[in-house]
Amino acid sequence: MSAVDTRLPPPGARAAHRGSPGPAPGRRAWMPESATALLLLTPVILLFGLSVIYPVIETLRISFWEIRGLGRPRFVGFDNYLRLFSDPVFLGTLWTTLIFTVGVTIVAVTIGWTIALLCAFAPRQTSIFRLMIFATFGISEAVAGYIWIGIFRPGDAGLLNGMLSAIGLADLAQPWLGGANSALIALIITAAWSAVGLPLLLSFASVQAIPRSILEAAYMDGAKPLAMMWHIMVPLSLPGARVAIFLTLLSSLRAFDIVFVLTAGGPARATETVGFFMYRESMTQFNLGYGAAATIILLIGVLLVSTPAIAQRTKGAK
């Protein structure tokens, strides 16, 4: 064996070898790689194109047209957008969407994350309770809406009012879904109840991923559970919680089912979110252009919230 043979290959050689897993030289190329790729991707490109790419472009196009029911479409430029921003109902909708989204995210992530942190101290003893909370993940928003209608019923038949009376807060009892503010609160509570599973799951996974010895070291350093949570577990489970915050923001921003079922946007459109507004305009009033413009605004909001995630995924797309 000569000295040359034992030398390491130059750094570039390995990279080049890894670079293209294309057909190995000498192998019978029975089909060009691009053709194989096309074959495997055809269903995906067709279905994705039909139900994502086409609709996005088409919604954008329609938003510049006035289309009422089956009448003749008329090109109106930015008219729909200008109308939206002078429409007090739509402006109210934006505000409602903001409060709803932020409210649901704060409530759901706070509860989910806190429970996840607590559960880490006794994973086995708390597993059944964790499952009880997590179970809402399997229940649809629509069903959640029906479940909570019963709780927010006016008078003593509603559980919430009944409970408030029982603890001496009968003054707070009210027809929850009847008042503008209380209906929004009810909507946030219901959505948070339904949404808490994901923050719980993600934060719990993140807490569990903290090396055991770090927690033991903190315990040896005298950290009691609350100090341990605050100084060690919160900072170290932040990655999971950050994903949870983002996903909860995203799904609340797009909410429709739960609004439709629990309040249908009422009373007097006080709980209408943008996602519901576009449905009402386009599917019940058949103002397709107007509804499409509202959808584009929703889309812009979603993209703004998602910018960091999109940047990260785009960078990671190799």
């Binding site: 090396p211 010895s213 770090i214 033991e216 070291a217 903190a218 040896m220 060690i232 900072p235 170290l236």
Partner: peptide
């Protein structure tokens, strides 16, 4: 205690 994998607080 000094741990095998040091168990330093990474943050």
């Amino acid at each position: 205690m000094v741990f095998q994998n040091y168990a330093l607080y990474p943050h």
